[in-house]
């Protein structure tokens, strides 16, 4: 939305816009890393994620103040998010789940980011060098907005869907008295 308004206003090359883009990129990555931290079960990987976030923020700051190449931050962010998404799928395939992966809310959040990041990967890494190109700017808007829309649709699916709960398949049912299968029930008979 911000990029759309700024584009309409003709502020695309403005330093303020660049700053907003950079802050957005870092914030987006931090939120995604936080979400990823929350959904994965591997404890050793959980220890690595904060380190990766710190390194990413540090590299973004260096890039922002010294290098001034926005594509670098976007490229690194995209690659890290892609790795996290693929790891999530790998982790899910390893687990002996008996319910289907697409019944899980996390799956829809992950694919929304996977598709968005994969679709805009080339766009962002080319953006730094191609901004003066008018044709590129037009394509940038189309591609970015299309994938953004797709991402938001998938996130909406995630928000609207109900989590499938695993129903217990045993006899500890509330209809039965609490001690029906215990030694107490035998004692009660006598």
């Amino acid at each position: 939305m911000v990029s759309f308004i700024l584009h309409k206003e003709g502020h695309s090359a403005d330093p303020l816009v660049e700053t907003i883009y950079d802050i957005f990129t870092v914030a987006e990555f931090c939120f995604f890393a936080g979400f990823f931290y929350y959904i994965i079960s591997d404890k050793s990987l959980k220890k690595i994620i904060p380190v990766v976030v710190i390194l990413f923020v540090a590299s973004s700051l260096i890039d922002f103040f010294l290098v001034l190449d926005e594509s670098f931050t976007s490229g690194v962010q995209a690659v890290l998010i892609l790795i996290m998404c693929i790891y999530y799928f790998f982790d899910q395939l390893k687990k002996p789940n008996s319910f289907l992966i697409y019944n899980n809310i996390n799956f829809w959040v992950i694919i929304s980011f996977l598709i968005y990041v994969a679709g805009t990967f080339f766009l962002y890494i080319m953006a730094e060098n191609m901004v003066p190109n008018k044709e590129f700017r037009k394509e940038y808007v189309i591609i970015n907005f299309s994938f953004n829309l797709l991402k938001n649709i998938l996130l909406s699916v995630a928000m609207l869907m109900k989590e499938e709960k695993v129903t217990p398949n045993n006899f500890t049912d509330t209809h039965l008295s609490g001690d029906w299968d215990s030694i107490k029930s035998i004692n009660n008979l006598s």
Partner: peptide, 13 residues
Amino acid sequence: VSTVLFFGTLGMF
């Protein structure tokens, strides 16, 4: 640029 962008994006998608 358009061709590279189109095929790159399509490939990644």
